[in-house]
Amino acid sequence: MMSSSDFVHFIPPQQHPRTRRYDGYLSFLTDPPYSVPNAAIVHRCFAHDRLYWLELKDEIQEETSIIKLKPQEPCLWVVIALIGGCTFHYDRVATVTSGNSTYFASNRRELSMELNPGKNWLFMVGFPQPCFDALMAEFPFLESLNQLHENKAPHWAGAIVPISSRLRAVLESLRRLVFQPYSTPVQLAGWSLRLLNYFFNDNRGNGTGTVEKDDISHYHQATKFIREHYLDDISLENVAEALHISVRNLTRSFENRTYTVNGYILHLRLTKAREVLAFSDRPIRDIAYTLRFSCPKHFSKMFKQKFRKPPMVYRNEMKKEKLGLDKRAFLR
């Protein structure tokens, strides 16, 4: 079995020591031999029985980081850029941006990858050349590997597609694994088959229609979650995390809708505020902080923008209206 230090190489090889706890999908893999000592980026990697796994999750502070992957043979790679983006250099240059996934194959036995400064979360699985015949037999779409297999082409690349909620669910299933010296490689191999099924069976032939269906599904899931939690301290990022999708995919699902994500949260809070003003004597300050506004002044400004009158004016009008109703009821 190839060791992690043979498979992954960081340039420069080291930087300041890290103390942050690793919380990626491969966090069940313990420290060395599943990470490179003194590596520039917090990561986990695993090479076993003709399969390669690599996950990078860290914040790069200063400049672009370069990573060299050196498998023992040409590979088919599946790449998922959860946060941040990366650029690959083999016989061509390929960039994967945040919130997207892709796959490609190359005859190169060395793959150079660049990560830009900022937060990065990248997940990769490699399937080396000895697996190609079996992969093509099981996934007919991969027959293009024949050209790579017979040295007729140096590389080929698939489409770049947004990360869907279904792909997130596939990744989240890794969190249920507990490291075992014998069973973990078997479980990871089975999980990799599930990943291939997603890319080359379940998701094949679904282009824009799949994205649109995912957007509709994400929109309804998000509005349901917001209605249940708008009284909590939630944000755009919180909602995306709860749905296991990227912020980009979440915001896209609200395009051409009445409200943005934050706009819908604000709408529900202000509607609740109107109800509380009408049927209680709670102070404006109390209402503002309960509904997660930064201060009473900001609450009053937002309320006036939406309902065309300040909170106290609305409350007084509601009191007069209720008083008039009471008088009419008494006269009857």
Rank of each mutant, 00 (worst) to 15 (best):
S5C: 08
V8H: 06
H9L: 12
P13E: 10
P17L: 10
Y25H: 11
T30S: 06
D31K: 11
P33I: 08
Y34Q: 03
H48S: 14
L54K: 05
L56N: 03
D58F: 04
D58L: 06
I66N: 07
I67G: 00
K70L: 08
Q72G: 13
L76Q: 03
V78D: 01
I83G: 01
C86V: 13
C86G: 05
Y90N: 11
T95M: 12
T95P: 04
V96F: 04
V96P: 02
T97I: 10
G99I: 10
S106V: 12
S106M: 05
M113V: 15
M113K: 01
E114C: 09
K119S: 15
C131E: 12
F132A: 09
A134G: 00
L135W: 03
L142W: 03
A153Q: 07
A159T: 10
I163T: 04
S165H: 09
S165Q: 11
A169V: 01
V170M: 02
E172C: 04
V178D: 02
F179Y: 13
F179V: 06
S183N: 08
Q187A: 12
Y198V: 06
Y198C: 02
G207W: 06
G207C: 02
G209V: 12
Q221G: 00
A222G: 08
D232F: 01
D233N: 15
S235Y: 12
N238I: 15
A240W: 06
R248T: 13
L250R: 07
T251P: 00
S253Y: 04
T260Q: 11
N262G: 14
L266N: 05
A273N: 05
A288N: 11
Y289N: 05
R292G: 01
F293H: 08
C295L: 04
S300D: 06
F307D: 02
K319L: 15
E321L: 15
L325S: 09
D326P: 00
